[in-house]
Design a protein around this nucleic acid. Sequence first.
DNA 1: CTTGCGCTTCCAGTAACTGGAAGCCCTATA
DNA 2: TATAGGGCTTCCAGTTACTGGAAGCGCAAG
Lengths: 133, 133
Amino acid sequence: MNIGAASEKSGLPAKTIRYYEDIGLLRPDRAGNGYRDYSMSDVHRLRFLQRSRSLGFSVEECRQLLSLYGDKQRESADVKAIAEIKLVEIDRKLSELTELRDTLRHLVHNCHGDNRPDCPIIDGLSGRAQATQ
Amino acid sequence: MNIGAASEKSGLPAKTIRYYEDIGLLRPDRAGNGYRDYSMSDVHRLRFLQRSRSLGFSVEECRQLLSLYGDKQRESADVKAIAEIKLVEIDRKLSELTELRDTLRHLVHNCHGDNRPDCPIIDGLSGRAQATQ
DNA sequence: CTTGCGCTTCCAGTAACTGGAAGCCCTATA
DNA sequence: TATAGGGCTTCCAGTTACTGGAAGCGCAAG
């Protein structure tokens, strides 16, 4: 499929897809007319990139995560080690997101649209501080 | 407290903290010697910024979220509307993160360190495709 | 056959930092 | 009291990850 279709399916702008090719995150075929030709597997990679980028992983982290699947040379123990490190990070992100959601929910429910309470919501938004001091 | 302490408490590099001040995300006091002087409230803002940035929100989104707390002028209905939009986004992020975690867990558990299975894990990593085609 | 949209490359601009130089502040130790 | 060193300051330049725009080719419709 052409880049337009790949863009629509992956949720990434065509510009970004070309950029990801530039930095070696995927290498789609080329059709006879010079157009890029994306396979479903390419689209899966792109969709994965869209997701993990939007969840705050860097491009290099995404590259690493993608390599868990794609790199036939890679040792299994190595794959496992990388995945486990990422799992810890994901769990942290999950609990932070959950906290943020709960705080916003509280704000929405305690704020009926007429008069905003002057509660220290920032404390909720910022999580438990390192030291109360 | 000085920028070093604020950095340690918020998890943000001093460079980034100064940058956030440049773009108007906070305005710490200045001590007599010209050093920035951060309050606990400043640290809360910074910690919130660290979190929400690492969860994939843009600086402008963070500014909006911070304004839910800080802007005394803002109408409550407005606050509620913004918070509700962000809630939808957070819920989406939560389910994507959960999926990603489950996939990685599967990878770790089915991959005992000896021989990596050649399963299409990318399908899990990329989520349900828009169209199977 | 030309209008127009989609594709191509290339180059420049933006967002969000990040590194480094040059110099002041402050404490500690000789 | 001098000086060494780490933390702070500003400023300017570089990096990452895009993003916009120009110039031009490909292709299907009218």
